[in-house]
Amino acid sequence: KQVQVGDEKYTFDTPEEARKFAEKVAKEKNLKVTEKNGNFHVE
């Protein structure tokens, strides 16, 4: 599963790991997490 933050992409083995990372980054940057096709976008 992938997490996209701006132009950066991070790959994780499980959706749970990806979601945790996305939520942590979103909180730090005051952004929101959206899920698209099983991948997460922080925007």
Rank of each mutant, 00 (worst) to 15 (best):
K27I: 10
A26Y: 04
F21Y: 07
P15T: 14
A26F: 03
K29H: 14
K36E: 09
K24F: 09
V3L: 02
K9G: 05
K32W: 10
H41F: 15
K24E: 10
Q2I: 15
F40N: 02
A18E: 00
R19Y: 07
G6E: 06
H41P: 03
T11S: 10
A22I: 03
K29Q: 13
K29V: 05
D7R: 12
D7F: 11
R19D: 00
A26C: 06
V25P: 00
N39T: 14
K36M: 11
V33A: 05
E8R: 14
A22R: 04
V33F: 10
N39H: 11
N30A: 07
E16N: 06
K29Y: 14
P15N: 10
K32A: 09
A18F: 01
N39G: 10
K24S: 09
D13V: 07
A22M: 04
K9V: 15
V3S: 01
R19K: 08
K36D: 09
K27E: 09
D13P: 10
H41L: 14
Q2G: 07
A26G: 05
V3F: 03
Y10F: 12
Y10D: 01
K24R: 11
E35Q: 10
V5H: 05
V33K: 02
E23M: 11
H41A: 08
V25L: 12
R19N: 02
K29I: 05
N30Q: 08
E28P: 05
G6S: 04
K32N: 08
E16R: 05
E23R: 05
V3K: 01
E28L: 10
E28C: 14
A18D: 00
Q2W: 15
V5D: 04
H41D: 06
N30S: 08
N30F: 07
A22F: 04
N37P: 00
E17A: 10
G38N: 05
V3C: 04
E8H: 13
F40G: 03
E35N: 08
H41G: 05
T34Y: 14
T14N: 09
T34I: 14
E43R: 09
K36H: 12
V5T: 03
T11E: 09
P15W: 14
K20P: 00
E35V: 15
E28T: 07
A18H: 00
E43A: 11
K27F: 12
A22S: 03
D13K: 11
G6W: 06
A22D: 00
K1M: 12
K1C: 15
A26W: 04
T34N: 08
T14P: 01
N37V: 02
Q2R: 08
F21C: 04
V3W: 03
V33S: 03
K24D: 08
K36L: 12
A18R: 01
Q4R: 10
D13N: 12
V42R: 02
A26I: 02
N39A: 13
E8D: 11
P15A: 14
R19W: 07
N39L: 11
E8N: 12
F21L: 01
K24Q: 12
A18L: 01
G6Q: 05
